[in-house]
Amino acid sequence: MRKLLKPTLAFAAIVASAMWILSAPETLSDGAEFARLGDVEKGRDVFYAGGCASCHAAPKAEGDAKLVLTGGRKFPSAFGTFYAPNISPDSKFGIGNWTALDLANAMVKGVSPGGQHYYPAFPYTSYSRMELADIVDLHAFLNTLPSSNEINREHELPLPTRFRRALGLWKLLYLDNDVVSGDFSRGQYLVEGLGHCAECHTPRTILGGLKSASWMSGAPLSEGEGRVPNITPHADGLAHWSIDDLTEYLESGFTPDFDSASGVMVDVIENTSQLSDEDRLAIATYLKALTPIPKP
């Protein structure tokens, strides 16, 4: 038995070192794209397509108050309770000191300026597909918003989830770092990337990653009782919706039966109503082209 102890310890040490190396936060390198002055108007479109205010505005904020990205909204989940941080341009309490590169590392790599992994309650698994130029524009737009000196609330997490470094391993499983290039359609870019639709409409594995085999087919609501609907063109999803029905819904929130959006989707409609007709059409066309999958 004693004879085995040494090799076992050595093996454990090797595994631990390998895990440590594999879980290291990965970041983007600085480049010419980040030196450009961001376009505020384009950044505004990115802001609404990405739905930033839906999570980062103060809980229950309405109207102009939704532009004060004070944070504080609560996200209960199977892995603990997360609180959205202040991302207003306040240099002390918000992200006013961030460069466009910092914002890109957060959104595409899920890594903070201090080199820590973010929890995937922040949907970088979708934003990872963003074009860096869009992030530079978004950075410029965010800097035009009002500051807030709200202090960030600590997440309330059980012990195993508190070990942030382990997220590096989680990212190896679930973070696809491929940045979308020009040959992806606009609709796919908006749905899979900026709009991060799958984060709610796709069920998750026991480790909290998206189940790609059930892509967009609906899932339990993570924040409480209820379900998120199937948005594939299956009979129990969007099969009966025309593209016009979908663009109307994304603009006004009314379904073909003049029922209205409910729950957190009301916030999403507030964002999609700000997009151009072309972008809403691109989203609708792309959703209707998804593989039809029954709800899980």
Partner: peptide, 16 residues
């Protein structure tokens, strides 16, 4: 009138 649909369904309606 229509704003009532959204505001009420946002807080008090869920999908099942």
């Amino acid at each position: 009138v229509g704003a009532n649909c959204q505001s009420c369904h946002k807080a008090y309606r869920i999908k099942r």
